[in-house]
Amino acid sequence: MKSGSNLERLLRAGHFAVCGEMSPPQSADSSSIAKKCGYFKGYVDAVNLTDNQTAIVRMSSVMSSYYVLQCGVEPIMQMTCRDRNRLAIQSDILGACSAGIKNILCLTGDHMKFGNHPEAKPVFDLDAVQLIQMVKKMRDEKQFLSGDEIKQEPKVFIGGAANPFGEPFEMRVLNLAKKIDAGADFIQTQPVFDLARFQKWMDAVREEGLDKEVFILAGVMPVRSAKALHYMKESVPGMRISDDYIKRMEAITDKEAAMEEGVKIAVEIISEVRQMPGVAGVHIMPVMWESITPRIVEQAGLLPRPELPADEPAVTGLER
């Protein structure tokens, strides 16, 4: 056990994990976080707190993870390299761990160009692979990146991201292997809207035996309209959307019914990826629609969420 987080214990015990995702508020008022926690408590095993996603300023992921923890939900703090250099990242990690945050998702971060401060200085002092390696060094070797000793190391479950849908395809598997080499314990993928491509990626991952070395959580994004799918297909680079889903969403004109169809598609994708060997869980990420999470988890047959006592050791011999 590397961190003892709920997510880590469930995955090591062989349970199919469910993660949610929440965007911190664009304000100095934290009350919306407590409200949103109601959508997650008892429905997901841990919830991602995004770090200025799409480079739009929001409350810091460190503070919002802390609020989420206080609400009794386990946070996965996202940490990007866009806004901080190596000093700031390390100090934020120390602070977060002192507050009891046990999962960190290490990302490179979206470029400023897409956000509300495109004129800002891009930092990118490290990249995601180097960030994962640094956090592992802090945890396992009890050392800062400089080599200086850390008295109390940050005990964290280290996450990384993978995009099975970006080009070049072969590089996507190589990149995953590199993140595992660097020290990633779990991987969350970009949202699956192209099952064939995801299957192809998982096949390549299994061929290299990478699914045995890391827990892979497939991304699932419920959408409310055909417009959202069109937007992602045309304007979000690195996404692949199967035309079937677009046609199904387009066929429905009623707003309420379209939302139902969106839920149905998400549930279908969950049941498909759940059957693929090597997929250890799902990461449900409704953008600005957190309230739908409980319904999707319920309809996918993932309730009740298993609860493990804090000191229960891993049951299976999975060495990941």
Binding site: F124, V129, G166, E167
Partner: peptide, 15 residues
């Protein structure tokens, strides 16, 4: 633009 030395970010377009 992100000075990635270890591989691509997630945003490479299809082309």
């Amino acid at each position: 633009p992100k000075q990635m030395r270890n591989g691509p970010c997630g945003g490479t377009r299809e082309d």
